[in-house]
Write a protein that binds this DNA or RNA. Structure first.
Lengths: 228, 228
DNA sequence: CGTCAAGTTGAGGTTCCTCAACGCGGGTGG
DNA sequence: CCACCCGCGTTGAGGAACCTCAACTTGACG
């Protein structure tokens, strides 16, 4: 599925994204009238773009959560990142996407043409700077993810919970939009190991499970010790 | 160790870097007179910059091989990349380096001030474009590295050999500049597992070991099958 | 020829995966 | 309204992959 001209949301609807600290530059970027950003809904589990499709658009999450992932020939899937409101995804340097993107829950998405963005960056230094900063942030996240993958299962789950607590909740209670399978594929573990580890963390009084997707961080320092 | 004004190599000495396909843009970048690139030697195992030091310089390998890495609090080390002649490293968006860099063998290194580079990119669209492309390449490599880390030991070692064969040799014979410990820390394995896996690959007639650092790829397709 | 770092090999242990059964909850149809 | 079903999650038992610890080998260099 590629974005069509039938943008079913008005810009005014999608412009009030949450835009957490740090990434607010990307919010401004999509708000620039010269880029002609449009909006569209993406329903749960629908594909936004696929690996090796032409990378003609760059996307921003307005609401909901998106996963980007790559699959190996034998079907193993690695989720390279979760993208929440305010996050930009799908920006590539090559002509084709190197990963796929799917909505985890019903989402609202904005998009701009990549060619428009690149052309604008030739004229506008500010846009060029934001593009570089965005790519640099992605690089940072990719490296953090690599570092995550050399840790033990306990440490990976703890790091994941801290990351999610920081990114999608202000309080200590986390509402996870993704399934155990998504978490497992992000952490390079199996769903059973993720489940067992969460149970263990609860046993250590580090967290409390309120239903499978609601988690309270009870003892953040216990998680932080596992994180670094 | 930070680069000093005492550039002990003339530009003419260091300008003839090998500059393999693709990354040749970076070569041109360091050749631009307005950037005032300078050169320096870096001897085997010496630090080029350290984690959380100010990221005042951007570097390019002229000759030799460099490792960049991060360490966890308990001493585990992850090598995020090996950098050979023509590769750029040490470019950060933040004020501080997020990894460390060391020369694996005696190297010649060029460097430019980051502030000079960023200032130049404001005036020169070509430089801005090269910076973005460079960062994008790094992003691609970081993601490939993440994907590597979810594979089995066999697959990781095979992928590593293919990567090295492609990057630092034209023939099928590879001369590895790095130790087993470096390889292990790059692949998220132990030296024993790396050693055993190489022995096994030799047993499967996929490779031939000529001394610990010289390897002949005997059956590339056997490695490629493990790679994707 | 001796020394020392680097690499290899072996034995045993730990972590995580695999396969399987069971539990829970939300939706649908009788 | 209840019963059933089905996807999702949890728990258990056993096995495979990789790690740890230790001994031995190799090769480079004085």
């Amino acid at each position: 599925m590629s974005p069509q001209a039938n943008s079913q949301l008005h810009q005014s609807d999608v412009a009030r994204s949450s835009g957490k600290s740090g990434m607010s530059e990307a919010v401004r970027l999509f708000g620039m009238p010269e880029l002609g950003a449009a909006g569209m809904p993406a329903e749960r589990n629908s594909e936004i773009y696929g690996e090796s499709e032409p990378a003609d658009y760059v996307y921003k999450v307005v609401s909901g959560t998106v996963r980007t992932y790559r699959v190996l020939s034998d079907g193993r899937r690695q989720i390279s990142g979760f993208h929440v409101a305010g996050d930009v995804f799908g920006f590539e340097l090559g002509a084709e996407h190197s990963d796929s993107a799917e909505a985890i829950v019903d989402c609202n998405i904005m998009f701009v043409r990549r060619s428009t963005l690149l052309a604008a960056s030739q004229r506008n230094h500010e846009i060029a700077r934001v593009l570089l900063t965005m790519t640099g942030h992605e690089l940072q996240r990719a490296r953090d993810h690599s570092l995550l993958l050399i840790k033990s299962a306990h440490e990976r789950v703890a790091s994941f919970l801290l990351e999610m607590a920081q990114r999608l909740s202000s309080k200590s209670e986390i509402e996870l939009p993704m399934s155990r399978q998504d978490i497992a594929d992000y952490l390079g573990l199996t769903i059973e190991t993720v489940s067992r580890t969460l149970t263990q963390l609860q046993g250590e009084a580090a967290i409390k499970l309120l239903g499978s997707r609601r988690i309270v961080v009870r003892n953040p320092s216990a998680l932080t010790e596992l994180d670094d």
